[in-house]
Design a protein around this nucleic acid. Structure first.
Lengths: 247, 247
DNA sequence: CTATCTATGTGTCAAAAGTACACTTTGCGA
DNA sequence: TCGCAAAGTGTACTTTTGACACATAGATAG
C-alpha cells in the first residue's frame, strides 16, 4: 500500500436531499440549477451543501434544504453515505466547485436524505447558489451534477421499498384527497398499474383513510368522494408491526 | 446563529462494522475489546476505525474489519451515517481516544456497515488496537463504546427488515445445513417462534434449498437430512422482484 | 332537455397463501 | 427393549390476492 494511502481522510461533509412531490399526475423531484460559471452549461443538481461544525447530520440536511429552496421543517429520512474519491471529478463539476468552494479539490463525503412533500404546500424559493429550483418529473431526470443521479436512484429505490412495506405517501397529498389520487400516486411511485378495485378494497380495509361528507364539484364526470388520512389508525397499524403492505 | 457554527465541518471519517454470526443456537455479533487505558474498564466496541485518503467507503470498511479482526472479503451492506457532534463525548471514550488518536477531540462521522457470516469460516484474530475479538450473543449486548449500541440496533433492524423481505441468511450457515438449523436462524433473527411445518413448506416451495443424499450421523435422535442452498433458483427469485417473503 | 362524455364506484369468484394444530419416525444410549 | 429427543409429515380452515365489466353522477354541447 502506498504511504499516501495511510493518511487519514479529513474531508468535508455535505448533505444532499432528494425531495419527492406529486402533482396528481406525475412524481417529481425538487432540483436546483446551479449559478452558471463562465461558459459552462448550468446543470441540475440535488439541493445540497457542506455542513457546519456543531451541526448534527439531520439538522444540517434541513438547514441546507431550507437555504437552497426555502422548504422548511421537512421530515427527512437518510438514504446513506456516498463517498467515492472520484465523485466530484467530472470536469464540469470541478469548474463549478472552483467558483464556489474555498477548497474545491477537497474530498467531500455526502450524506443523502429523502422526503415526500405536498408540492402545493412548498413553493420552492431558490437562494444561496441555487439560481432556480424546479420540480422535475422523474422521467425527465437523466443526468445530474456530481454523483447525484446515483443518489437519486438510491432514494427512489428506498421510496419504493418503503411504500411496498407500509402505506405511506399521505405527505404527498393535500389534507383531503380522492382515492383516485392516492391510487395514481401509488402507480407513479411503483411505476406500474394497480387494479383500481383491489387498491380501494385494501385501503378501506386497513381503515387508514376515512370518507368525508364532501365531494368534488364542477368536474365533468361523476364527482368523487373526498377522503382524509386517519392518523390514529395508521399509527396503530404501524406499531403492531405491520410491514407487509404489498400489492 | 453563532458565527462559530458557520465554519464548515472538517471531520475524520470512520467505518464501524456490525458482523452477525450464528452458532446454531444464538445470533451473535463480532465485537472487539479495546486495549485498556490506565484505570479504564476495557469496553466492547464494534470493529471500526478511521478511513484513509483515496479509499472509497466500502473498501475502507473491509480493510478496517480485516485489520481488527482478521475477517476478509466480506460482503458489507451500508447501514447509514452516524454523525452526532456528541457521539464520542462519553468520558470513558474520550480517555481512550486520547490514548490512540492523534487528534482525539476531532469530530468523527462514521459510516456503518453490516454483514452476515458463517462463524466457523471466520475465526476472529484480533490485531491493531483490538485486544481481543469475540462473538457476543445479541442478548448480552447491553452497552457498547461510543454510539455503537445505537449503530448495532440500526443494523439489527435492517437485518430483520431484509430477512422479512427476502430469504437471506444462507451466509450464516455452512454449505450443508439442516432445515432445523435454518428454521432456528430465522427465529433468532426475528426474535419470535415460527411454525416448523409452515416454515419448511415455504422454504421447499420456493426451491431455494435442495435436499442432499446425506444425513446427520451420531445424533441421539432421528438424524436430519442435509440441504444445500440453491443459488440459481435464489437469484431467479430475486430477479423476478420477489420481495414479500414474510411469515 | 336529451344525448354524450368522462372518470367514479362497485361485487364476485377462483386461486394462492397463511395459520393452527398432533402424532409418528429414527437412531442412540441406558 | 425401552425411553428419549429431535425430525418429519398432512389437513382443514381462514384470509388475502388477483382478475375481471358494467352502472352511475354530473357536466357539457347540441
Amino acid at each position: 500500500m502506498h504511504s499516501k494511502n495511510k493518511h487519514e481522510l479529513n474531508p468535508r461533509i455535505s448533505t444532499d436531499c432528494v425531495i419527492f412531490g406529486f402533482d396528481f399526475s406525475q412524481l417529481k423531484v425538487l432540483l436546483i440549477e446551479r449559478e452558471s460559471v463562465e461558459g459552462l452549461d448550468p446543470s441540475m443538481a440535488l439541493p445540497g451543501d457542506l455542513i457546519y461544525e456543531e451541526e448534527n447530520l439531520d439538522m444540517a440536511a434541513n438547514r441546507v434544504l431550507n437555504e437552497l429552496t426555502g422548504l422548511k421543517e421537512i421530515y427527512l429520512e437518510q438514504v446513506g453515505a456516498f463517498g467515492d474519491p472520484n465523485r466530484l471529478n467530472k470536469e464540469s463539476d470541478k469548474a463549478w466547485l472552483k467558483a464556489v468552494r474555498k477548497n474545491p479539490d477537497e474530498r467531500v463525503v455526502t450524506i443523502a436524505y429523502y422526503s415526500l412533500v405536498n408540492m402545493n404546500d412548498y413553493l420552492p424559493q431558490p437562494s444561496s447558489f441555487a439560481k432556480s429550483a424546479y420540480w422535475i418529473p422523474v422521467h425527465e431526470i437523466k443526468e445530474l451534477a456530481f454523483d447525484h443521479y446515483e443518489i437519486y436512484q438510491a432514494a427512489l429505490k428506498k421510496l419504493k421499498d418503503k411504500i411496498m412495506a407500509q402505506p405511506i405517501g399521505f405527505n404527498l397529498l393535500p389534507e383531503k384527497f380522492t382515492l383516485s389520487q392516492l391510487h395514481k400516486l401509488y402507480e407513479v411511485i411503483l411505476g406500474r398499474d394497480l387494479d383500481k378495485r383491489n387498491f380501494r378494497r385494501k385501503m378501506l380495509k386497513l381503515k387508514i383513510v376515512e370518507s368525508l361528507d364532501e365531494k368534488q364539484e364542477g368536474v365533468p364526470h361523476k364527482p368523487s368522494q373526498f377522503f382524509k388520512f386517519n392518523e390514529e389508525n395508521y399509527s396503530k397499524l404501524i406499531q403492531n408491526g405491520y410491514d407487509n403492505f404489498g400489492f
